[in-house]
Amino acid sequence: MRRLVPLVPFLWLGLFFVIPFAVLLKISFSEPAIAMPPYLPLWEWADGVLTIAINLGNYIFLTEDPLYLVSYLSSVRIAAISTLVTLLIGYPMAYAIARAPEGRRNILLMLVILPFWTSFLLRVYAWIGILKANGVLNNALMSLGLIDQPLVILQTDIAVYLGIVYTYLPFMILPLYATLSRLDGDLLEASADLGARPLTTFATVTLPLSMPGVLAGSMLVFIPAVGEYVIPALLGGPDTLMIGTVLWNEFFLNRDWPVASAVAIVMVLVLALPIALLRRIQSRAEKA
């Protein structure tokens, strides 16, 4: 039994990643059709002859229209900016929690996790109520006399950044807290004893030692943010271009499941490469 335990992660990976990925790959080599399901089968068995038709056209098509490249880049940009902002907000919070008195830490961590008790969708909807022209924020600012025209925030990129940062903040704080709370206090004291000011200690001791947490948190935010569909759909403007929207159009508006699958496959590859690179940097940092 014990020997089987290491197999569990592989089983997980196989069931929830490899098999769906293989199905997508198969569809991406097919051609759309008016049928159920709406694409042609890859192989046909007739009169003892197996015919396999692999259509690379869907991938070639992605290179012909700049839309796909532009939306990949735009998704990566939105995700990168959101990750940076999340890091800038999350780091001080995680640091404060890690430095808080022992008894209070659990309460503070609880508060970070608390929003998860409500549905993600409802929380994004709540932002609509806050940001809209006739909403909480604008009404408050107007009654305070700070503005006399409602600010247009909803249906802009700013609302998308707000939504992503708000939603993913706990994913940044938790791994950061994990590394910061394990930070050896003696090292900080040693640094101070040797004459380093707090800022220098932070830059030369705390920050480098918390890098694994920074990387883990950033990946947990960046990866899902690139493929985000719900937040830009609800909070974003019509000109918010993300790969999730393009996927939706291919799949639903064009009923072109093969091209939609090709877009998804390329997205996985585009994401997998930088992540593998990050992992290598991380493991090297841990060894050093």
Binding site: D65, S71, P238, V246, L253
Partner: peptide, 19 residues
């Protein structure tokens, strides 16, 4: 037709996003 849906969606994306 599938062909027209593709051109229509593409034009619609251009309209919405400018791309």
């Amino acid at each position: 037709s599938a062909r027209y849906d593709r051109s229509l969606t593409r034009a619609w994306t251009t309209l919405k996003t400018g791309r």
